[in-house]
């Protein structure tokens, strides 16, 4: 096999595995920046994956599948926001409850719709789109510019998020709500509204990340298919130091690790797979310990805001 082919395939695999993590991590980024830590990502992604799959099946359109996934996740986000913002329920416990609840709900609904024994039906899914000219670039063309639309969307969301958070007034308010909610409130900004908005918008992105799993990366829904990616996304936010570009780097890095781990195994490496799976978590802890420069979480992260 030619080396350039290997690299092409490798980069393509990296992008594919990084995309669901990137969506979820960007969604979480909005929430964390506003001061909310949502550890229910796993549940949000499952709901997104199921909604995407079922909607695409009924409307016979993958695009509608993703839109529905975003909407339903947004509604779930609204409920989550009511809990953690309005009635100030503990964010961690609510997240855990959502994870348990979603696993049960998606399994039940999926079985009700699709049955237990039938083989998986044909569902409209996203096909690779080759971008003219750019896809002709040697090595990188076929790996980066021949992907599904959702991959491009995820990549485009990175500069958008950066612009939104750092260059717009709403972005400033979101960041302020996560750092100094008291002062922000005094300055006349409604911290509750800002957090509601960040949670709902963020949840929609997380849901799309789930839908990418069932409509882009794969072409089906299976029970518990998120398989820990929600927690990896959580790690990616920190590894990316709460910055969209950093988050992109983290998602690609974890995707790289995944793609590398798989290839190492295929090549017959004898490193136990558990150690390879541990790497993202170890890296994240290392980042927090300042091994690669200091990272600071938003000051008010995880603390409900009380108007006094």
């Amino acid at each position: 096999m030619i080396v350039s082919d290997f690299i092409t395939h490798f980069i393509a695999a990296d992008l594919r595995t990084a995309t669901p993590i990137l969506f979820a991590a960007l969604g979480e980024l909005y929430m964390e920046r506003s001061g909310i830590i949502n550890i229910g990502l796993e549940g949000f992604m499952l709901i997104g994956a199921l909604t995407g799959s079922i909607s695409s099946y009924f409307f016979n359109s993958a695009l509608l599948g993703v839109i529905m996934a975003a909407l339903v996740s947004g509604v779930l986000g609204l409920i989550y926001a009511f809990f953690v913002v309005t009635i100030k329920a503990n964010q961690v416990a609510t997240g855990i409850a959502i994870n348990i609840f979603s696993l049960g709900l998606t399994t039940t609904i999926y079985r009700a719709f699709m049955g237990v024994n039938t083989s998986h039906p044909n569902i409209a899914s996203f096909k690779n789109i080759s971008i003219p000219l750019l896809s002709k670039i040697p090595i990188f063309g076929q790996s980066i510019f021949n992907q599904t639309a959702l991959v491009y969307l995820a990549l485009m969301l990175v500069p958008f998020t950066y612009y939104f958070l750092y260059k717009t007034s709403i972005g400033l308010k979101i960041r302020a709500a996560g750092e100094y909610p008291q002062a922000t409130d005094t300055a006349g900004v409604n911290v509750f509204q800002i957090r509601y908005g960040a949670i709902i918008g963020g949840s929609m992105l997380v849901g799309v990340g789930g839908a990418y799993l069932s409509l882009g990366l794969l072409n089906m829904f299976t029970e518990n298919m998120v398989a820990g990616r929600g927690f990896i996304a959580l790690a990616a936010v920190i590894f990316g130091k709460w910055n969209p570009w950093g988050v992109l780097g983290a998602a690609l890095f974890f995707g790289f690790g995944d793609a590398l781990a798989i290839r190492l195994q295929v090549m017959g490496s004898s490193i136990p797979y558990q150690f390879l799976l541990m790497l993202p978590y170890i890296f994240t802890v290392a980042v927090l310990a300042g091994v690669v420069g200091k990272a600071f979480s938003p000051t008010a992260l995880g603390i409900p805001y009380n108007k006094e």
Binding site: I87, A89, N90, T94, A97, I98, I100, F101, T107, R111
Partner: peptide
Amino acid sequence: AVIYIIEGLVVIFVL
């Protein structure tokens, strides 16, 4: 799966 739903709901409602 239904039992998971009930468990999740208990927590959500208590919170």
